[in-house]
Design a protein around this nucleic acid. Structure first.
Length: 340
DNA sequence: AAGGCGGGGAC
DNA sequence: GTCCCAGCCTT
């Protein structure tokens, strides 16, 4: 596995090339692992570059304003990660002298760091033989040992296989090798068994069932929820926006006011006005439901003091600081701005 | 143990 | 449209 990795390791912004002798920066490894949770490498790259350029050290990040970090994270999703990222940076500075702890057990106590991330940081940044388990490695183990029991019940068996294979030497490169393999060869559909370095050892390949593994429990159907979203613009271009509550969907993110989201939502405009029915529907799909928001718009008087949210001057408003649902509403709203 | 929690790309 | 992704937290 390590020979294959030395020859084929992907070049990634947070990765130290194998054999370079360079030490990995725990801050950068941690940052990349948080961003990579349930998120593809392609998506993460640009965010990782922006974050590390703006905040080069954990102390820089710990000193940042909450709104700056949430705005920079906008579009990446799973916003609890951004809130925990900042919490974690502040704990590392306040309680660990600005250096990440170097054991799996200590890392596991930090906000936003669970079993996967603790093992990944311990092995990649600190060269400790902590067995790393993620979706890629689960799939590789299920195929390598032809585990036919469905996920998530089979997780303990897959973890046992991964633990047994974790070497004392270069455990971080071993873990990254398995993840690279899962991402490029042992893919969910149409695995490229013909060029796989583990071809000779793989039981699923021998049985011709590689593409059928891992089996998974059937998923639930996503319901559709409805609602209204209210875009109010003043003559000077300022937009009415609010910061959503810390907990829950899009927590801590900038947003246009909306009604409740349900089967039969009631209108809930942020202030009394002649709200135009634009005839536009904003469609978006979250992890567990589809959403359709009817777009309402109005011109707000300059002297209005809203009870919800506040008017953000045009010069201070960055569309890129909105989560994608709200960015869609902004792009679909009728204005003189260029949707491109 | 189960459910909440984003978004984009591949098919 | 569905499935998947370097998962974590709450209940």
């Amino acid at each position: 596995m390590l020979e294959w990795y030395d020859a084929h390791a992907r070049v990634l912004p947070w990765r130290v090339p194998p054999g370079s002798g360079e030490a990995a920066d725990p801050y950068r490894i941690w940052m990349s692992e948080i961003m990579l949770q349930q998120t593809t490498v392609v998506t993460v790259k640009a965010y990782f570059e922006r974050f590390t350029a703006r905040w080069p050290t954990v102390a820089d990040l710990a000193a940042a304003e909450d709104a700056e970090v949430m705005g920079e994270w906008a579009g990446l999703g799973y916003y609890a990660r951004a809130r925990n990222l900042l919490k974690c940076a502040r704990v590392v500075v306040a309680d660990h002298g600005g250096s990440f702890p170097n054991t799996e057990a200590e890392l596991l106590t930090l906000p936003g760091i669970g079993p996967y991330t603790a093992a990944a940081v311990a092995s990649i940044a600190f060269d400790q033989p902590a067995p790393v388990m993620d979706g890629n490695i689960e799939r590789v183990m299920a195929r390598l040992f032809a585990v036919e029991a469905p996920l998530p019940g089979s997780k303990p068996v897959l973890k046992a296989h991964a633990t047994r294979l974790t070497p004392a030497e270069r455990p971080g490169d071993h873990a990254q090798a398995l993840m690279d393999l899962g991402a490029t060869i042992c893919t969910p559909r149409s695995p490229a068994c013909g060029i796989c370095p583990l071809m000779a050892a793989c039981f699923a390949r021998a049985q011709g069932i590689a593409a059928d593994l891992p089996r998974k429990a059937p998923k639930k159907v996503k319901p559709t929820r409805l609602g209204y979203v209210y875009v109010a613009r003043r003559a000077d271009g300022a937009l009415l926006l609010e910061t959503r509550p810390e907990k829950g969907l899009l927590g801590g993110m900038l947003a246009f006011p909306t009604s409740e989201w349900s089967d039969a939502p009631e209108e809930a405009p942020p202030f009394e006005a002649d709200w135009r029915d634009t005839g536009v529907e904003v469609r978006h799909t979250f992890t567990h439901f589809h959403l359709r928001l009817t777009l309402r718009q109005t011109e707000a008087p300059m002297d209005l003091a809203p009870e919800r949210g506040e008017f953000v001057p045009e010069a201070l408003f960055k569309p890129s600081s909105l989560p994608t649902l709200m960015r869609k509403a902004y792009d679909l709203s009728e204005t003189d701005h260029d949707p491109a």
